[in-house]
């Protein structure tokens, strides 16, 4: 299943920019650790999107310059960050009330697998994982108003990550609304996966061949 010569998968940076394009001004957004963190770099500062971090930071700005690091200001990925004007701090219970109480407009997470019914598996790759680390993933997946996933379309061994049923332990049931991969943008609907956008030069049959669950072509529906 090699790609046709014309197909060009999106780079990580292009994926981040593609997700950022769909985030409107005014949304409160949590970006998961890993690939999703880069989305913030593609939301222009004049578009006021308020980024939240689990450790009690609301209104995160870009990474600081090396000579302007505040050692008291980190994000959930334990990276140094800045705070925008209008930003605020709170404790962990309030921070997770924002998440669990449905106050976040959007959470973007990475995932190992997403099923056609919106199930997500992103915290453990085996029932017998020695010491799985869940962090805030289950709270975010269950609590945000909408959950988008950002991930490679297939695993490193080529196996599909968009599946009929997750084989890995679930993070949340029926939570995912949209998936952004390096090959496509796919909505999760009551009828299953619906393709909204595809990487340049990629054929629909080729995309389906890299996807376990059936895809509907919804590109005309926008």
């Amino acid at each position: 299943m090699s790609a046709t010569a014309a197909a060009r998968p999106l780079t990580r940076t292009e994926m981040a920019a593609r997700v950022a394009r769909d985030i409107p001004e005014g949304w409160y957004v949590n970006l998961g650790i890993g690939i999703p963190t880069a989305v913030a770099d593609h939301v222009p500062l004049e578009r006021e999107v308020v980024f939240h971090s689990e450790n009690g930071v609301l209104g995160m700005g870009p990474a600081p310059a090396k000579d302007a690091i505040d050692p008291w200001l980190i994000n959930a990925g334990k990276q140094y960050v800045t705070l925008r004007a209008g930003g605020s701090f709170c404790h962990h219970f309030d921070s997770f009330a924002m998440i669990r109480g449905g106050h976040l407009d959007l959470c973007v997470l990475g995932a190992f697998q997403v099923a056609a019914n919106g199930d997500i598996a992103n915290w453990a790759t085996s029932e017998n994982d020695t010491a799985p680390a869940v962090g805030g993933a289950m709270d975010l997946a269950a609590g945000a108003k909408r959950l988008w996933v950002m991930m490679e379309h297939t695993a490193k061994d080529g196996s599909p990550k968009l599946v009929r049923q997750c084989s890995y332990p679930l993070t949340a049931v029926g939570a995912v609304k949209r998936v952004y991969t390096n090959l496509a943008v796919i909505d999760v609907t009551p009828q299953g996966f619906v393709v909204r956008d595809m990487a340049p030069g990629l054929g629909f049959a080729e995309l389906q061949a890299r996807t376990d669950a059936p895809l509907a072509d919804g590109r005309d529906l926008g």
């Binding site: 921070s95 010491a131 680390a133 869940v134 289950m138 709270d139 609590g143």
Partner: peptide, 25 residues
């Protein structure tokens, strides 16, 4: 292993006199 928000909520509950609560997490 406890989800991070559930960990905060369980300890908050102890502090607030709430023996049991329900969460979607």
């Amino acid at each position: 292993i406890v989800p991070q928000g559930t960990l905060a909520a369980r300890i908050h509950a102890a502090g607030a006199g709430i023996p049991l609560f329900f969460t979607a997490t």
